[in-house]
Design a protein around this nucleic acid. Structure first.
Length: 429
DNA sequence: CGTCCACGTCTAC
DNA sequence: TAGACCTGGACGG
């Protein structure tokens, strides 16, 4: 669960739940984990955590500093699927790549779980130097870092792409960028510098000395700018406790909170790095060409078919071509070995084993009209009792949204922001 | 069964 | 600026 709210909540979880626990022994690492062995061993140690943007630092400290080893720091990134869980050491979840064992009997394990293994850890206390200040915990520094560097070529890009640049927006990810831009109805492919320079102007107005302090505060709260939202939107997720690491199978509140990302009725496009940006309204001047905004509808393709959608340009989306190529070029390297290792590392599979795909020489297809891929893959309403999936909230989003909004919004008409306001803890009164 | 898609970086043309 | 790196859920045939 990997944008700054998830990292922050993971840290809070570790401090609250593990703060009272005593850990013992060495740190276990699965052979496929994307990080080094941890050279730390103590017969009684504690674990504390702190997050910064999309990184999380753990500190292992012997309870008796005089007798034990010196403290060991570790900095994690969660990739697309990383998380921390505390569970009985005898029932490790699959993909628990790093484990800290408690001294209890029976012991439990604090696990870094990461099915896709895009996450990693490094030894030492250093944050990744290229990453900017945290949008949550270092708001002022974050803001200044952006506004002082608007001449950087990085801001030549569309705002939606710049929001993923961790040098300036450490902690923002794909769902947050959509939610933030949506609150201000900023076209995602407006040039970043244009958006942010305008913000500098507003800055001056807000510093108008004729305003009383309280009026100024009110003005700011009622008219948050883009950079403020980069702080308050993720903070909403945290303070409203939408994502509870102890209830990792319950994404109900979070799904309910999303106003734009994955929401039926919203449009989406691929940005220049192939990531899906969700938005409402105009895409903006720098929108990639050859792609038409796609409406996410609750229903699946049949009605889309009726719409004549012959793609005028033969252009293929980057993603499409990418995936086709991957399918075609599939040289599995020494599979058996990998499979065994994974088996050992991640424990027995729960369900039906899915045999590895053979390298079927799927021929590289010629370009396919976009319309073919255009159909909405968001599932239809399924009601609540759906079994929880081990990771990812995407699969859960739809049912809940449908619960709340029993009817889909008519095409083209989207719920107003106010209607959706959740009265979350950002109001400060 | 196969294809598409996912909360993120990295590095190699 | 494409891939590469991965697993697994949803969906279509």
């Amino acid at each position: 669960m990997p944008e700054c709210p998830e990292l922050h909540l993971a840290g809070r979880f570790i401090n609250r739940v593990c703060g009272a626990l005593v850990f013992a022994g060495g740190v276990e690492r699965s052979p496929v984990g994307r990080g080094p062995e941890v050279p730390f061993r103590s017969e009684a140690y504690g674990i504390s955590a702190i997050s910064r943007g999309k990184e999380l630092r753990l500190t292992l400290s012997a309870l008796d500093p005089a007798a034990g080893p010196p403290p060991q720091d570790l900095v994690f990134r969660f990739g697309m699927s990383g998380s921390f869980r505390l569970c009985p050491a005898a029932e490790l979840p699959r993909h628990a790549h790093l484990r800290f064992l408690t001294r209890e009997s029976p012991p439990r394990a604090l696990c870094f779980v990461d099915p896709r293994r895009f996450g990693s850890w490094r030894l030492g206390d250093a944050w990744q130097p290229e990453r900017g200040p945290c949008v949550i915990s270092e708001y002022q520094a974050f803001r200044e870092n952006v506004l002082k560097n608007l001449d950087d070529r990085a801001f030549d890009k569309p705002i939606c792409e710049v929001l993923l640049n961790q040098k300036y927006f450490n902690g923002i990810g794909n769902y947050l960028r959509a939610e933030i831009l949506y609150r201000l109805k900023i076209p995602p492919f407006e040039k970043a510098r244009t958006v942010l320079e305008a913000l500098q102007e507003q800055e001056k107005m807000k510093k108008d000395p004729s305003l009383t302090l309280s009026k100024n505060v009110k003005l700011r709260q009622e008219n948050p700018d883009l950079l403020e939202l980069c702080h308050t939107v993720p903070t909403e997720v945290i303070t409203a406790e939408l994502l509870d690491p102890e209830q990792s199978d319950n994404y109900a509140a979070f799904k309910n909170w999303l106003q734009c990302y994955l929401v039926p009725g919203m449009s989406s496009l691929r940005d220049r790095s192939g990531r899906t940006i969700w938005f409402q309204g105009e895409p903006g001047p720098m929108a990639p060409k050859g792609q038409r905004p796609r409406k996410a509808s609750r229903k699946k393709s049949p009605e889309l078919k009726t719409e004549p959608e012959a793609e005028p340009s033969p252009k293929v989306t980057p993603r499409a071509s990418k995936q086709r190529r991957r399918a075609a070029v599939k040289p599995p390297k020494s599979e058996l070995k990998e499979e065994e290792k994974e088996e050992e590392a991640d424990g027995p599979r729960k369900g039906h084993g899915r045999g590895r795909r053979k390298a079927t020489a799927a021929p590289a297809l010629p370009e396919v009209p976009l319309g073919v891929r255009r159909s909405c893959r968001i599932s239809a309403c399924r009601g609540k009792g759906e079994a929880g999936s081990p990771c990812g909230f995407g699969a859960h989003v739809q049912p809940l949204l449908c619960e709340r909004h029993l009817l889909p919004p008519p095409e083209g008409q989207v719920r107003g922001q106010e209607e959706l306001r959740q009265g979350l803890a950002t109001d400060q009164g």
